Computed example of a mutant assay.
Amino acid sequence: MHAKLPASLFLAAGLALAQGAQAVVLQGASGSNPSADYSGAGTVAFDLDLATFAPTTFRFTLEEADLAGPLAFNALVRNIGGAALEQFSFSLTGITFAASGSVTPAFGTIGAVSFGPQAANIAFATPEWAEFQFGNPFGAAAGSDWLLATTGLRAGDSFTITAASTVAAEVPEPGTAAMMVPALCMLGLMAARRRKRG
């Protein structure tokens, strides 16, 4: 007679096997911007929602499946903070860029893209108000992945990717500035009256 094994044991074993097959594990993200991780074997991929324009740092750990060649790196960066992006960068620690890929803005225009071993910088000629694709997160025919070098790295090594942005300074339109002048004059007049009374 065979003992019946509990279903929870099979569930736990299934989860353990699924986690063992996982690769490029996101250990955590620092910063206040929401993100979603889509990384897998040989690919680092995430969505980042820029709500505050404060830097966000992602910490990843490599697994054996990631070491066969360079890692593909893709990100969808959504601008939900209400200001226009002028520049954006990804900085690396513990890993380096092997090759550049595409950068596709939704509405802005790319001025220049530069990269070195530790950083990729994007300058928008026309500020981006909505989102841009770093690499090819949707697998479009016209896009290409950025690549991260894994030479010399081992399973268990960790690396970080820090995303940082620069937003356009808000310059009021002439009509808005014209309406502000009388209001500022009125505030100055009220402050002067208070000083006379006090």
Rank of each mutant, 00 (worst) to 15 (best):
G28T: 06
T162W: 09
A168K: 04
Q19P: 00
Y38S: 15
F46S: 05
F58L: 13
G20L: 14
M1K: 13
G111D: 15
T176L: 14
E128V: 02
A155M: 01
A142M: 07
A163S: 09
A142E: 13
A178G: 00
V103D: 12
L76R: 05
A51D: 06
G188S: 02
A183F: 06
M179A: 10
L48I: 09
M1V: 13
G198L: 12
L92W: 01
V77Y: 01
Q22F: 14
D37M: 07
G111E: 15
L62Y: 11
A23D: 14
A54W: 00
G42I: 12
A29G: 06
P105C: 15
A51R: 13
S32Y: 02
E173A: 15
M190F: 09
A130K: 09
A45H: 14
G152N: 06
A23F: 10
A54I: 01
G139D: 09
A18I: 15
A99V: 03
G14R: 05
F88W: 12
R154V: 13
L26R: 04
L92E: 03
S30M: 05
Q19A: 07
L76N: 06
G94D: 08
V77A: 01
V181K: 04
N121F: 08
F60S: 04
P117T: 14
L62E: 08
F10T: 02
F107Q: 11
A178R: 01
P55G: 12
Y38H: 14
A177F: 08
G108E: 12
A36H: 07
A149N: 08
T151G: 08
A98V: 08
T160C: 00
F10C: 01
A36F: 09
M186G: 09
K196C: 03
A83Y: 06
T151S: 13
P182H: 05
V44Q: 08
G81T: 00
N136M: 04
G31E: 05
N33W: 05
L48E: 01
Q118G: 09
G139E: 09
S100N: 13
S91D: 07
A119G: 02
L15W: 05
L148T: 11
L71T: 02
T150Q: 06
T151C: 03
A99Q: 08
G42H: 09
M190Y: 04
L147S: 12
R154M: 12
N33E: 08
L85M: 04
A72N: 10
G143R: 01
A163N: 06
Q87D: 11
A84K: 04
F134V: 02
L148F: 10
Q19N: 10
M179H: 03
S8D: 05
L15M: 07
G108V: 13
T150Y: 10
P182L: 03
L62T: 12
A183V: 07
F107P: 02
A142I: 08
T61G: 10
A192P: 03
T52A: 05
R197F: 07
Q19Y: 11
R197V: 11
G152C: 09
R59Q: 14
F138R: 08
